[in-house]
Simulated scan of single mutants.
Amino acid sequence: MTGPEPLLAGRSGMTGTEPLLAVRDLRVTGRDTELVRGLSFEVNRGEMLAVVGESGAGKSLTARAVLGLLPPGLRASGSVRLDGQELCGAPQRLYQRVRGRLVAFVPQDALSVLSPVHTVGDQIALAARSVRRLSRGAAMERAVAALDRAGIPDAARRARAYPHEFSGGMRQRVVIAMATVNDPALVIADEPTTALDPLVQDRVLRMLGELRERSGAAVLLVTHDLAVAAAHAERVLVMYAGRLAESGPVGEVLSHPRAPYTGGLVASARMTGRRLPSIGGSPPSAGALPPGCAFAPRCPAAADACRAREPQPYEAGDGRLAACHRLGELPDPVTELFEES
């Protein structure tokens, strides 16, 4: 079995103008263990890229590596270019200049970034003044406008309220208002709707869509929810064990996956036959990866070559990449590997 031709080093599979964010061979290492292992991807101006995968795949670490906000003891290597500037390995003073101005972060837990002793208006105004030379009054006007765009009713009055006076969904809107008050070019949202009910979740995601329409911002959305990715993103990056499993246009990847891992995720998200399909076993820990393809122990189509060497991302047609030695040999659709006959 010779397999498909591997993707040439340095190529992204994308064409056109220079991407807003270009990540090349990103590695996140801690205590001699690689948690993100040679990941490359792009985010184009004005688009939403969804990063999906099981817990422990490296999604949030990837987002934090881009932001320069890795936990203590972890370090990033490779290349992270944002609007032409190299950030990987850059001093913190450079990150401090680009955070808020070029890139903003929306975390999963709004209370982790909101101070309980300051009004939401003061906190958003402070974010505005950290980037722009504004008077207190002008900064507060900008904060109220951001709250209004975020769908907070009676924004001028609610700007004087404290975080505990807002519901969970409203707090998340406040955090998005804070992140976008300076119209950043890129918003990185790490599971921003996990704890919200479906109706509020949809409103929050629509906010991010409205931001893109208004300012042309790009969004890097980390999510475990394939339905969210399908409904709101143009492209998707599927991660497994710190590496790319598959990437490409979201409609193509999620409706017609090529990599077995993606097929397992898609099958697990829908009921077929008498049971809900699932991927057997558990993801490996970063310090105990199996030889060859990290997914091989869980893959119903694994062959000897899969257990011998790790696959590189291969061209899979239509601007897609897939890391699988057996592309072209598997059932079509590959979800059949996980579905009950």
Rank of each mutant, 00 (worst) to 15 (best):
G46N: 12
E54Q: 11
V200W: 01
A159P: 12
D304V: 14
G328Y: 02
F338R: 06
G216M: 09
V266G: 02
F41K: 07
R129I: 04
E210W: 06
C299I: 08
R160Q: 15
A161M: 13
A303H: 03
S12T: 15
I152R: 08
G248S: 03
Q312Y: 00
P277Y: 12
R320I: 10
S135F: 06
G251Y: 04
E34T: 14
G3A: 14
P71F: 05
A269T: 13
R173W: 05
L134D: 09
P290L: 12
G251H: 14
I152L: 09
A301G: 11
H256D: 15
G216P: 01
T119Q: 07
A138K: 13
D25F: 01
G209L: 11
L35K: 04
G317P: 02
L114D: 03
I188D: 01
V181P: 02
L186W: 14
T335Q: 07
P260Q: 04
V131L: 10
R81P: 00
E213N: 10
V113D: 06
R309V: 14
P313K: 08
L211A: 14
E234G: 15
L102V: 03
P333R: 11
D183S: 13
G56I: 08
R64K: 13
S40Q: 06
L134Q: 09
R27L: 09
G137F: 00
G38R: 04
S112L: 13
Q172E: 11
A303D: 10
A294F: 13
G73Q: 05
F105L: 15
V219S: 04
R37N: 08
V43F: 05
R81S: 07
R173C: 03
G46W: 02
G58T: 02
G38C: 07
E54N: 09
D154N: 14
D318T: 05
R309F: 03
P284H: 08
